[in-house]
Design a protein around this nucleic acid. Structure first.
Lengths: 224, 224
DNA sequence: TACCAACGTTAAGCAATGGTTAAATCCGCA
DNA sequence: TGCGGATTTAACCATTGCTTAACGTTGGTA
């Protein structure tokens, strides 16, 4: 059975909450529920679920916000996140997935469909989920500071955002376009050398070993 | 770009085929198309795509049958499979996903939605991380590095892409035209000896035993 | 054996790319 | 408005990696 798998389910409708919980528990999953976004974030930190089912429209914090918050959280294993929504418009789907979501399930929810989907999501989750943050270097996005070898280092905004972006996907190579879109925004156009200069300033502060250049491709954060 | 990612797209409607192909290629994916189920299965075996987009209703063999056939195939890496359908009934979704599909996309297809979905699927795909192959030699396409006898080896872009291309179809002989089209692109024309030189540099780094020359035909990656 | 085509090898030149630096500009703030 | 740090640009430099050309080697074939 699925007794080792914890699913966090967040929805503001108690009827749906109850129905889905019943169905998931019948399959042997551990289910934890939240009725608003803030509760979902708190519970995620506490129980560290494998999968989160997020209603998009919720009080306090909507699903997309919750997703973004969780994706920036410093937790050992990032959960899978699937959105539930009755809105089927394009923009909603894109907003959800680009916020770091893994799937999108339309309301009204049919238990059997949901179970199939949950199964498919978990089946595909990477097996080796031991994601360790480098011990010497930690980013505190709330306080906007960098913990480097025990000391607190305040970085300028752009440098901080650039480092945060790279650290979000350690090991994965991001190209200049991706970096500029994410850190500067789609509408801002800056010169080719701008990124380099910020990379240089970061390397000046934290050393060369953390950011690797992949020529012709981009940059990547290297875990130590 | 996504030049290392091949997507097989199967649909019996040539208009949809063209539109989606255009959009995927714009993002840099390699797209291979089929107009019926049997063709899809044959092409899957041949090109070994990372992702297959399957129309559910097709002549000869429907999408679900294709999926089942592929999931039973003995290929080095099982592709991700997503279904496309205009039927949104429950039974169809469940049939699709329990046949071993990874996702379900409703028609009518909106290009932007599809691209988000494709991206989300590939982002999380365990198979695209470390290419399964000989124990001594592993390619990590996200990190742009080669794991060779336990050590990390950074290869220059072209060498990496060339090796990735060959390793994608171990045992299958690729001729120079195929290699140049895939690694260099259709529009770039380089001399005959260029490929040889890159092959040589690769052999210098990983030894002669992995890449075999088939005179008059091309090169092939040899599994150890 | 002599020839030819195909592939291998080498080194050199060149183009692309990123690194570096300093100066200019921007921007918030008093 | 002027200051100071942050950001961006521009110009130049260094390095890497790509390509080519010239020549060497091999293996098949008449």
């Amino acid at each position: 059975m699925n007794t080792n798998t914890t699913i966090l389910f967040a929805d503001d409708d108690p009827d749906i909450l109850e129905m889905i919980t019943y169905n998931l528990e019948k399959e042997g999953y551990n289910v934890v529920t939240a009725t608003n976004g803030e509760e979902a974030v708190a519970l995620c930190r506490k129980v560290q679920p494998e999968l989160i089912l997020l209603d998009v429209m919720m009080p306090k914090m909507d699903g997309v916000e919750v997703c973004e918050t969780i994706r920036e959280m410093d937790i050992p294993v990032q959960p899978l996140i699937a959105f539930l929504t009755s809105r089927s418009e394009d923009y909603s789907q894109i907003a959800g997935l680009s916020a770091g979501g893994d799937d999108y399930i339309n309301k009204p929810i049919r238990p059997k469909v949901l179970l199939s989907r949950v199964e498919a999501l978990l089946r595909r989750a990477p097996i080796s989920k031991v994601e360790k943050s480098s011990s010497e270097l930690k980013l505190d996005t709330d306080r906007f500071l960098l913990l480097f070898k025990g000391e607190e280092l305040y970085l300028p905004k752009k440098e901080f955002e650039l480092l945060a972006f790279l650290m979000k996907k350690p090991g994965i190579v991001s190209n200049r376009d991706q970096i500029m879109n994410e850190v500067w925004g789609d509408d801002t156009i800056v010169g080719e050398r701008t990124v380099d200069v910020h990379i240089r300033k970061l390397r000046e502060k934290i050393g060369d070993q953390y950011i690797r250049t992949v020529k012709g491709v981009g940059y990547t954060f290297v875990e130590q």
